[in-house]
């Protein structure tokens, strides 16, 4: 793997970490519950992206398995939380 791909991967990793920080701030300052739920879901997706980037950079396929588990758990929890908030009228 040539050097410029490693460079691009490190650049992309930095950008994603910055986006995660912005997203955490957004969840903190959220207007209502569903807004924060959206922010947390986006946070999970960005962490997934970080895992895939690390898998490419360190040439470790194990990180893809971790990403699959994280995707399944994040999806289930977000769906259940949205349904629960709609049922109990929590805003």
């Amino acid at each position: 793997m040539p050097d410029y791909i490693i460079y691009i991967l490190n650049f992309s990793l930095g950008i994603h970490l910055l986006l995660i920080a912005i997203c955490v701030h957004r969840v903190w300052k959220g207007e209502n519950g569903l807004d924060r739920l959206l922010g947390v879901d986006l946070l999970g997706t960005l962490i997934l992206a970080v895992l895939v980037i690390i898998a490419i950079r360190d040439q470790q396929p194990l990180y893809i398995d971790v990403a699959m588990g994280l995707a399944a758990v994040g999806f289930t929890s977000s769906i259940l939380l949205a349904k629960y908030m709609a049922d109990q009228q929590l805003r």
Binding site: L38, S78, A82, M85
Partner: peptide, 14 residues
């Protein structure tokens, strides 16, 4: 997920 969150938001009257 988008559908579930959108339906919940409309149901809550946001």
């Amino acid at each position: 997920l988008s559908h579930a969150v959108g339906a919940a938001a409309y149901q809550l009257g946001i």
